[in-house]
């Protein structure tokens, strides 16, 4: 029995989500291999070799894999997957894009967004924006799974010896899609899904200019910035800040929601945070139902006071 993890990386570095996927893999039984698909990604390969309890690192390094588009990588993964009982990816936009396609190529079902491994073939996953949980038994011979990072601890320890590398030299060309460009949000703050503290702003901020106080507060606390859908739609914050059912899922030690009403779609992305603080001038806002500490006050008054106090 063996397990294959598909590494998530940007050709420069392994993404932290891999550490969470590795923890999930360790809860299954079997040797763990990892597949790195990319182009000129030496540093990624070395990091993958150092991951704990990895038996072997498969490497498919070619220009055709530079942007890791699904049209050819899904086929590459499917070819290798036949030797495994489990194939795992993180439930990120990257994993969600590739792994369902891979599973379909082998006419197999896939279980996405797993929050708990119950047994070798049974998993827990949220449905209806986390308002219910499904216990799902997967009867397929290859278990394709995507793992929700916030539900599994990070395995950050490295192993003392380097796992051996095996080169895959089959090159599958992608004639169907072409990478044009990307616009990545550049930030010196911790990554939203891994931050210990997250400060999120909603429509209550009223405009992009005001949203800067959320950023200022985050910087003061060393946290990441999140946003509600309404704030993103209104252009206060970039799309990759969105927390919720259809955005990112976070579970920091401290989540501060400012000017956010607490729609179920937003709660789906943050209600597993350890401590939740809500600042809202409407005492009946649903966000207070899940907040550990609620402050009913004008957010502008409260945040400036908060900034002043924290600077002391």
């Amino acid at each position: 029995m063996s397990i294959l993890i598909i590494a998530e990386h940007d050709n420069q570095a392994l993404k932290p989500c891999n550490w969470h996927t590795l923890t999930a893999a360790q809860q299954l039984t079997g040797d763990i291999d990892i597949l790195v698909i990319g182009y000129q990604c030496e540093a990624v390969i070395t990091s993958a070799q150092k991951l704990k309890k990895i038996r072997q690192v498969f490497v498919a390094d070619a220009k055709a894999y530079e942007h890791q588009l699904p049209e050819n990588t899904a086929q590459l993964i499917a070819d290798l997957a036949k030797n495994y009982q489990y194939v795992l990816m993180a439930a990120t936009t990257f994993g969600k894009n590739i792994l369902p396609r891979t599973a379909a190529l082998l006419e197999s079902a896939i279980v996405t967004d797993i929050t708990k491994i119950i047994s070798t073939d049974t998993f827990l996953r949220p449905i209806y924006a986390g308002n219910a949980f499904a216990t799902v038994q997967n009867k397929e011979s290859i278990q394709f799974l995507t793992i929700r990072s916030t539900a599994f601890k990070a395995e950050t320890a490295s192993s003392t010896s380097l796992a051996p590398i095996k080169i895959i030299d089959t090159i599958i060309l992608n004639i169907l899609s072409k990478f044009i460009n990307q616009i990545l949000t550049i930030s010196t703050r911790p990554e939203l899904t891994n931050a210990r503290i997250v400060i999120s702003g909603g429509r209550g901020l009223k405009n992009a200019e005001n949203f800067k106080i959320i950023e200022e507060l985050a910087d003061l606390l060393g946290g990441a910035v999140g946003a509600s859908r309404a704030a993103v739609d209104a252009g206060f914050a970039p799309n990759d800040y969105q927390v919720g059912q259809t955005g990112k899922v976070v579970a920091p030690d401290l989540y501060i929601a400012i000017g956010i009403s607490g729609a179920i779609q937003h709660l789906a992305g943050m209600k597993d945070s350890k401590i939740i603080v809500a600042i809202n001038n409407d005492p009946d806002a649903p966000i207070f139902e899940i907040a550990d500490y609620g402050l009913v006050e004008d957010l502008f008054t409260a945040t400036s006071e908060l900034l002043a106090e924290l600077k002391k």
């Binding site: 079902a109 949220p126 799902v136």
Partner: peptide, 19 residues
């Protein structure tokens, strides 16, 4: 291919306080 064994409610958060 996926057998739904059961559907359960999420764990409830304990209620917090207002400061």
């Amino acid at each position: 291919r996926l057998h739904i064994l059961k559907i359960t409610p999420p764990e409830k958060r304990h209620t917090g306080i207002k400061v």
